[in-house]
């Protein structure tokens, strides 16, 4: 019976055009997942009771930490990429040490190192600032490589044309090189932003009351872990989809602009 429905479903969908195919298959997969979660026999009244606190406290903190990190990481990345491409030995060495170090350590360890390490040096740091420091430092290192590749993909002639007209370095970067490398930089950067949003959950280990922290703690008292984890998972997913949507908007904007 299930098998017949399944085959019929596939045959019917086969007749639709691409757009409807995509939408219907999406919805069906989603429904499948939801029935899977229903199977866990969740206590929905408990979820309803806690979800508002989770959103107001948890989502707010998660977004706050991620947004600041998302703003800071590209700035680090541009500076890092320029330094890595420069002919100045100091700049290159510092930038490549930075990318090597922060890409080489697990993010969780960086969070601990900053939160527990800085006080050893005499700088006592709160949990939230520690998290906000760790995330952009780590992702800035990954994005340095993305930006470097984007900048390098622009032909040498574009530099020469700009410089020969009297553009200084900064102007060349801003007006010629970055606008042309953005279409290449944006897709992987969008990926990084989504990853950053989810990796902001790592700062829960140092006690920041963000989404993950609440998901682990709210259900503790009554042993209703599953309810809270699934709720948090759904919230993370929704937030990521928002970022995906923004990314595809921006990509479309660039596609129409370059005819």
């Amino acid at each position: 019976m299930v098998a017949i429905l399944f085959v019929l479903n596939i045959v019917l969908i086969g007749f639709l055009n691409f757009r409807f195919q995509a939408i219907i298959v999406w919805l069906q997969l989603l429904a499948l997942f939801l029935t899977f979660f229903y199977g866990f026999d969740l206590d929905f009244s408990f979820i309803r009771k806690k979800v508002w606190f989770m959103v107001s406290q948890g989502v707010f903190t998660t977004l706050y930490v991620s947004a600041i990190s998302i703003a800071l990481a590209p700035m680090l990345a541009i500076v890092g990429a320029v330094a890595k491409l420069s002919s100045n030995g100091f700049a290159y060495a510092i930038a490549s040490f930075y990318t090597s170090f922060f890409r080489g350590l697990p993010l969780l360890m960086q969070v601990y190192l900053i939160y527990l390490g800085l006080p050893q040096l005499g700088y006592v740091i709160d949990a939230v600032p520690a998290g906000i420091l760790a995330l952009p430092l780590c992702y800035g290192a990954y994005m340095t490589e993305i930006f470097r590749a984007g900048i390098q993909s622009i032909p040498k002639g574009q530099w020469e044309a700009s410089r020969s007209m009297g553009f200084k370095f900064g102007l060349t970067m801003r007006r010629t090189i970055l606008p042309q490398s953005l279409p290449l930089i944006i897709p992987p950067t969008g990926n990084q932003f989504i990853a950053m949003l989810k990796d902001s959950s790592l700062v829960s280990v140092i006690g920041v009351w963000e989404l993950m922290f609440l998901a682990r703690t709210l259900g503790n008292k009554t042993f209703q872990h599953m309810e809270m984890l699934i709720t948090a998972a759904m919230i993370y997913w929704c937030l990521s989809m928002c970022l995906e949507l923004i990314q595809s908007r921006i990509e479309r904007h660039f596609r129409t602009k370059s005819h």
């Binding site: 020469e160 044309a161 007209m165 009297g166 553009f167 007006r175 602009k257």
Partner: peptide, 30 residues
């Protein structure tokens, strides 16, 4: 460089700008 104009073998126009915008960059920014 402001006084010397150089024309290249491969043109090196700015592909992300229109023809008119290509002409406007030097007067505007330099």
């Amino acid at each position: 460089r402001m006084e010397v104009g150089l024309v290249f073998q491969h043109f090196n126009l700015f592909p992300h700008l229109t023809v008119l915008q290509n002409l406007m960059v030097a007067p505007m920014w330099v």
